[in-house]
């Protein structure tokens, strides 16, 4: 059973449809990428999952149950535009947010101590929020998101504004939480991170879902049968005559091959022509390329 299931979600603002009959499922324990250009309707979808907004039509199921307010205690949400109360201390602020997520005072305190220790920032406990730098407050925001040990984690552009060290740290935490079986929705523009981190993605544009699937599966689905062959020596005469060459440099050629043919037959062709092949790769499209192609064709 998927952890989250969106069924024919419609959300309308005046005449504008921010979500237009969107359906997809998010499997348990996976890192799920919610992608789309600006204004595609990602935040609206997230806000409906977090019960900040309600859909005009359609159903959202959490663990097979109709999503209700009680489920919000099982969700941790870090919005893209995030902030903290400036006049509070780090410790009391985290405890406050933890309690709003249903933790008891003692439990919240315990969890805060655990996370501050884990990030080696125990001495921040009594620091005022307004004294924190941007990177520091982002760490605090991340702790606030995971403090109540939610089953589902929603991270909207979690790396925006983070320095490389903090980025790495958060990425490691995301992977660790995934290993613990947590489900993570990851919304971002940065496609290289999607490829690195996500198991599955859904792509939305203009309120509509235009693509979904596993990262590896999508790359296969959108591959163009391009192969890059590196070799030593000169290319033998007539070898490239019947081939669709995309790019050619000295010692390397990129070929677009017929769909029915497998890579093996291309390699065989090179070998038969007496070429000394040093590497042979199938070029799969990056998620970024798929993204751009899909959005443009949409």
């Amino acid at each position: 059973m998927p952890l989250l299931s969106l069924q024919h979600i419609i959300k309308q603002y005046g005449t504008y449809r921010a979500s237009d009959d969107v359906s997809f499922e998010i499997p348990k324990g996976k890192i799920f990428g919610l992608l789309g250009p600006n204004g595609a309707g990602k935040t609206t979808l997230i806000r409906m999952i977090t019960r900040i907004l309600y859909p005009d039509a359609g159903n959202i199921l959490f663990n097979g149950e109709q999503l209700t307010d009680k489920h919000t205690e099982n969700i941790g949400y870090m919005p893209e535009e995030r902030g903290l109360y400036k006049k509070m201390k780090v410790g009391e602020h985290l405890i406050y947010l933890g309690r709003l997520k249903g933790l008891s005072q003692t439990q919240a305190k315990e969890n805060v101590n655990y996370w501050l220790k884990r990030f080696e920032i125990e001495n921040w406990l009594n620091k005022n929020i307004e004294e924190l730098s941007k990177g520091m407050s982002q760490k605090v925001q991340f702790i606030a998101t995971v403090l109540h040990n939610p089953e589902l984690l929603i991270l909207d552009e979690p790396f925006s504004g983070l320095d490389p060290i903090n980025s790495k740290l958060i990425e490691e935490e995301i992977r660790a939480m995934s290993k613990q079986g947590k489900t993570i929705i990851f919304s971002t523009h940065r496609m290289e991170q999607v490829e690195e981190i996500c198991d599955e993605i859904v792509l939305v544009n203009k309120g509509k879902k235009i693509l979904e699937g596993g990262v590896k599966e999508l790359k296969q689905r959108f591959k163009e049968n391009k192969f890059r062959i590196s070799f030593t020596g000169e290319i033998s005469n007539g070898l490239l005559n019947n081939l669709n060459v995309v790019e050619q440099t000295s010692g390397e050629v990129t070929v677009k091959f017929d769909e029915e043919h497998k890579g093996n037959s291309l390699l065989k062709l090179f070998v038969e022509h007496g070429m000394e092949v040093s590497s042979f790769n199938e070029l799969l499209p990056s998620i970024n390329e798929i993204f751009i192609r899909q959005v443009q064709s949409n």
Binding site: I52, M78, P79, E81, R82, L84, Y85, L100
Partner: peptide, 17 residues
Amino acid sequence: QEEKTSRIVEVLTSSVK
């Protein structure tokens, strides 16, 4: 206004109505 401008409100409304 403080909650709105500091953008904490989105985190809050994901926890409480």
